[in-house]
């Protein structure tokens, strides 16, 4: 088990280095001068620009820049942005809301996706199943921002059940609608995955054998069908944590939430390269970390690969 964990950790390192290098290069190796752009139309005085370049190591060769950035990542000191704010503080301010939002969305998609998926799978070919498949396709087909607007209008404005936008200090109630919107697409995928998995397991030999040894239908469903069907679903959910957090950029925009998405979008518009790279790096770390977690969960759920 320990070796398995160790090996997976070792595999993660090159991926982390490669991904951050790629992002860093995309942001800093682009045509045009990030510093010159700061001055807007008039441009900055050359002396000021030089000073900024020196402060941000932009005068050094690219790989040195990247290594210095990596050192920052490891020591959790990302430096200051062009406006003089500590980037690590910006990150610390942005993440809590987004994490809360992503976790709420995760719970919603897990509960409803698995629940409906299980019922649809057990009633394959029946009305519930057909409806679930069509509805889930709709959730996948309609873009998140459209779902967001429609919910704002219907639930927020017309019905007045939930607040339309989220204020400075969001609570669970005000985050509920954004979480629903964020969860919509993944919910559809979880539902379909659970359904497929349940259908497959229902016809598995060991399910038949379990019934042959006298287990009732509900015992077989709970202990064998559901338990085995959850393996791929949990894998999907784990990997989805990372996707939800970066996907929040749209949801946060619609509902005016000051989370990672809002901050990142703001930084992109303002050309705050350091903030952009730092935020995306943290997101990538979350993504990689979530995938690592999935591997461990997988090992816990499926004894076959435990010591592989």
């Amino acid at each position: 088990m320990l070796w398995y964990l160790g090996r997976r950790l070792l595999q993660v390192i090159p991926v982390f280095l490669g991904a951050t290098l790629l992002l860093y290069a995309l942001v800093f190796l682009r045509p045009g001068d990030p510093v010159a752009a700061l001055g807007g139309e008039r441009g900055l005085p050359e002396a000021v620009a030089e000073q900024i370049r020196a402060d941000y190591n932009l005068d050094k060769p690219f790989f040195v820049q990247y290594l210095l950035f990596l050192r920052g990542v490891v020591t959790l000191d990302f430096g200051v942005d062009f406006r003089g704010r500590e980037v690590s503080e910006v990150i610390a301010n942005a993440f809590p809301v987004t994490i809360q939002l992503a976790l709420m969305a995760l719970i919603i998609e897990a509960v409803f996706g698995v629940g409906f998926g299980l019922i649809a799978g057990m009633r394959k070919g029946k009305l519930f199943d057909a409806t679930a498949l069509v509805v889930s396709l709709l959730f996948i087909a309609v873009p998140t921002f459209v779902v967001g607007f429609v919910m704002q209008i219907v639930i927020g404005v017309n019905l007045g059940w939930l607040p339309v936008t989220v204020g400075r200090d969001p609570d669970v109630i005000s985050l509920l609608m954004p979480a629903l919107v964020l969860a919509a697409v993944s919910f559809a995928y979880v539902l379909r995955l659970t359904r497929t998995s349940v259908v497959e397991n229902l016809s598995a030999d060991y399910v038949r054998t379990a019934r042959a040894r006298g287990l009732s239908r509900s015992q077989v469903t709970g202990r064998h069908v559901l338990r085995n069907s959850l393996i791929p679903v949990v894998t999907f959910l784990g990997a989805d944590i990372g996707a939800l957090m970066s996907g929040a950029i749209i949801t946060e925009g619609i509902f005016n939430i000051n989370g990672v998405g809002g901050t990142l979008y703001d930084a992109i518009i303002r050309g705050e390269s350091i903030t952009v790279v730092s935020l995306t790096t943290v997101l990538v770390m979350v993504y990689i970390g979530a995938n690592l977690l999935v591997d461990l969960l997988y090992a816990a759920l499926d004894p076959r690969i435990r010591y592989a």
């Binding site: 090159p14 991926v15 982390f16 490669g18 991904a19 992002l23 996707a243 997101l283 990538v284 993504y287």
Partner: peptide
Amino acid sequence: RVTDIFFAIPLVLAAIVILSIMT
């Protein structure tokens, strides 16, 4: 490993970062 690296960067996030600096 190369596939893993590109896989580790969410699609929309990467697209936003790159496209925002393209003129």
